[in-house]
Amino acid sequence: MRYPIVIETGSDDTAFGVAVPDLPGCFSAGATLDEAVEAAAEAASAWMDAALDAGMPIPAPSSLDAIQQRPEYAGWTVGIIDLDEVLSDDTIERVNITLPRRVLRRLDDLARAKGQSRGAFISQLTLSAR
């Protein structure tokens, strides 16, 4: 997925600022232009993950032309970040994993104690491990 970004030029005294207009509140900065763009991709990934966790939809990316015409970004440089499509995919997928029986028993006991299925418990553990 290609999302447009807007870049506010930095200087010797200030960092480069980057915003992702299609993802409200998503912004980053970096000492160099490369660092700022890389940080923007990381910020967008985190934004999408948090939005999906909150049950919010992921906005579709705007065209570069549409972003460039927005008056609030006059004088900013327009660019793009390329994000892995999996970041916005909340499709349920069946997986087969291999675990020792003692680990599986412990996993099931922990899930049962939380009133969850095995899959829901694994999902909760994974999403809370940040």
Rank of each mutant, 00 (worst) to 15 (best):
G17R: 08
G10P: 01
Q69M: 13
A19S: 14
A113F: 00
I92V: 13
G10C: 08
F121Y: 15
E93L: 12
W76D: 09
N96K: 10
V6R: 14
G115D: 01
A46G: 11
G115N: 05
L33W: 14
D109Q: 09
Y73K: 01
E42K: 06
P21I: 00
G55N: 09
R106I: 03
L52R: 13
L52I: 07
I97A: 09
P59Q: 03
A111W: 03
A120K: 09
P57H: 04
G79T: 09
I7N: 00
E42L: 06
S117N: 07
I7M: 02
L104W: 05
S128F: 01
V103M: 07
A50F: 09
C26V: 02
E38K: 01
A129D: 08
E93R: 13
A31I: 13
T9W: 02
A46H: 11
P57E: 11
I80L: 13
G75F: 02
V37C: 05
A54S: 11
V78Y: 15
V95M: 04
E93K: 12
A113Q: 03
R101G: 00
Q116W: 11
V6N: 09
G75R: 06
I5M: 11
S11C: 12
K114H: 13
T77R: 15
D22S: 12
A120F: 05
E38L: 01
L99Q: 10
P57Q: 02
P24S: 04
T91F: 11
P71G: 05
E38F: 00
D22P: 09
